[in-house]
Design a protein around this nucleic acid. Structure first.
Lengths: 162, 162
DNA sequence: TATTGTTATACTCTATAACTATA
DNA sequence: TATAGTTATAGAGTATAACAATA
């Protein structure tokens, strides 16, 4: 309550500087956030996803849909539970995700005769060609990341995260 | 449709192996996902946030709330627009976020007399002590990350991401 | 009993658009 | 006219719980 008087000689000079300096941002300090891996992981994830989304929106494939198509494509016949566990997606969410991909004719759910509870997942022919197109765009996106991060840092991050 | 007959000799052996092997997971391959930085950034972010959330849930502070409190605490008087830009949060979302923190008596929004449109943000005394407690817990969380990742990899990641 | 897929619910987050009051 | 804060809305993601069919 006692600080009410001193507040305005803080924000105002920052904004005046912003107009005359090369950096448009005021000098805001992150404090302890600068030591938190989670903070930077989130920022990186958002930054990368934004480029990915923009790159694949022309074929209407989201990051989650892409990961689902890739894993089904490389592991034909796997179950929804296995797919969910592999990608760290909730089983319940995967249901709707697959529903839409099935409606679009990209994925098939086949009853497993060995275990009546399971669905064996596989791509349809259109699903395979959609995935092929998606992979090309995704590779272009990854190339852009390499450009912006530098090849060494990109490789270093990928290696450290794996 | 022609693949219906061959699907079961794919998933079934995986599951049988899972019971006898040391690894409980079937050998599912990630394919091109293994080369995508975004995929690993997302997995890292989820993994880190889960530990962070569990660590700070006892004081009912979410990751987003924590980052807001930290930045306000270190930049008293900044505006909502500045805060939103700094953290990469939507201005619209920040409104509700601050609303809750204000209701809990942790944050104050003061009208800037220099610019009637802006709110000068600052922590209340309870807000400052809540932040102090949160920082202690957050440091404990970060220590756990360092334990699990190894100090070198943690430092390397932090450095590469900054 | 346990597991697979499913439905339902609630809450958070993201992305917009539009409104108000101030500048 | 532009900006700061706000409200509203729609969609995605997350976290649960409960259910039917099957094991």
């Amino acid at each position: 309550m006692a600080e009410k008087q001193s507040r305005r000689d803080r924000a105002a000079p920052f904004r005046r500087k912003a107009a005359t300096r090369s950096s448009p941002r005021p000098a805001i300090v992150l404090d302890v956030l600068d030591g938190h891996l989670g903070y930077f992981a989130r920022r990186l994830q958002i930054w990368v996803f934004q480029d990915f989304i923009r790159t694949l929106e022309r074929i209407d494939i989201s990051p989650a849909q892409y990961s689902v198509l890739v894993v089904i494509g490389a592991n034909r016949g796997l179950s929804q539970a296995e797919l969910a566990a592999t990608l760290g997606i909730e089983r319940a969410r995967l249901v709707r995700l697959l529903h839409r991909l099935e409606e679009r004719g990209l994925v098939q759910r086949l009853r497993s005769s060995a275990d009546g509870r399971r669905h064996a997942l596989q791509l349809t022919p259109p699903g395979r060609s959609a995935l092929a197109r998606a992979k090309i765009l995704a590779a272009r996106h990854e190339g852009r990341l390499i450009e912006k991060l530098g090849a060494e840092r990109h490789a270093l991050l990928l290696d450290a995260l794996r």
